[in-house]
């Protein structure tokens, strides 16, 4: 057998030490604020219904659930909400999550997520805390740069001259092709969110530059787990965090209405069916927990590997993960 030439880590030990330091600072931040660290299952009976996420699945053989399909979690959101509904108070978790099919300079199908929930917070309070966390964690390591706040609509108007709440997919197609030589022939004419994602990733993100950017008030179709805020048009109480132009975190003012949540899950399952994606089972235990009462809370998930990438000035996750999945 030929020896493998690629058995060594792709990240330097300096980077691995930096990674350990960031993790220690994250834990210190939450300890000081009396947010409880928790540990929920990576292997679940139910999966995310989000059509943009593909769960890995596996088979269990043994007592109790013999032959059951189990899923590796794409985020620890559902069991953490069950803890919240059971009365945990504010909680955080650092864990590995898994998303099938995602690999590139900023993606690895297995990655480290920091997810936390704050009872009594709305999404605006939580955005403030994200800024405080990043300030504390990156202190003397990497400058945070200027901080900007946009609504999703303002951001699109500023960087793409598009009003995302009134534009049609056809108009986006013409603007991207004529003005920026960007095209995606396979995006269908009724997939407005897909076209908006194309604008976001291809046109807006490259213009964000250095610094911390908060974007909030998303189209309701882009936030299946967030509360809605009435208005014309109504918007979802969702926010995204970009650091140096890289998507770093996503948060919600959490939807607590079990009936509304079930309806949104079913809508997502229908979209999965229509797109030919794997059918998954709804998380009935989450819905039961919501039904018994989720405290008023906001939650956010932050990509730790990307944070290490930004802190170390690396250009790819490859340089900050000891063993990327292709040499795992």
């Amino acid at each position: 057998m030929q020896p493998h030439q690629d058995w060594r880590p792709t990240a330097s030990f300096d980077t691995l030490r930096l990674r350990a330091e960031l993790l220690a600072r994250i834990r210190a931040f939450f300890t000081a604020r009396e947010v409880l660290e928790v540990d929920t299952p990576a292997l679940s009976c139910a999966a995310s219904t989000d059509p943009a996420l593909e769960s890995f699945s596996t088979l269990y053989n043994g007592p109790v659930l013999a032959g059951a399909s189990l899923y590796l979690h794409t985020s620890p959101e559902f069991p953490m909400k069950r803890l919240l509904a059971a009365g945990s108070g504010s909680i955080y978790q650092l864990c590995k999550v898994f998303r099938d099919g995602e690999f590139g300079a900023r993606h690895n199908p297995e990655f480290t997520l920091l997810e936390w929930y704050r009872t009594g917070f709305d999404h605006l309070d939580l955005m403030d805390e994200v800024e405080q966390l990043l300030t504390a964690v990156l202190a003397n390591i990497a400058p945070l740069g200027p901080v900007h706040h946009w609504t999703y609509r303002e951001l699109f108007l500023q960087y793409a001259s598009i009003d995302p709440f009134t534009v049609s997919p056809g108009e986006i197609q013409v603007l991207l092709q004529a003005g920026h030589n960007i095209s995606c022939a396979a995006l269908s004419a009724d997939d407005l969110d897909g076209w908006l994602d194309l604008v976001m990733t291809h046109l807006i993100e490259p213009q964000l530059g250095a610094g911390l950017v908060f974007v909030r008030d998303y189209p309701v179709s882009q936030a299946a787990l967030a509360r809605l805020r009435p208005g014309t048009p109504p918007v979802a109480a969702r926010f995204e965090v970009y650091l140096n132009g890289i998507e770093l975190a996503n948060g919600f003012y959490e939807l607590a209405d079990a009936v509304e949540q079930r309806a949104r899950f079913e809508k997502e399952l229908e979209r999965r069916r229509n797109s030919g994606l794997t059918a998954v089972s709804l998380d009935e235990r989450l819905l039961s927990a919501l039904d018994s009462g989720l405290p008023d809370c906001a939650g956010v998930a932050l990509g730790v590997d990307r944070l290490v990438m930004i802190a170390s000035g690396a250009g790819s996750l490859h340089d900050v993960i000891a063993f990327p999945f292709d040499i795992s």
């Binding site: 943009a52 690999f103 590139g104 969110d193 994602d197 291809h202 882009q222 998507e247």
Partner: peptide, 14 residues
């Protein structure tokens, strides 16, 4: 080629 995907959105290959 490059894999591009928003956390909650459409995956592209550029």
């Amino acid at each position: 080629n490059e894999f591009v995907k928003p956390g909650k959105g459409q995956a592209f290959v550029r």
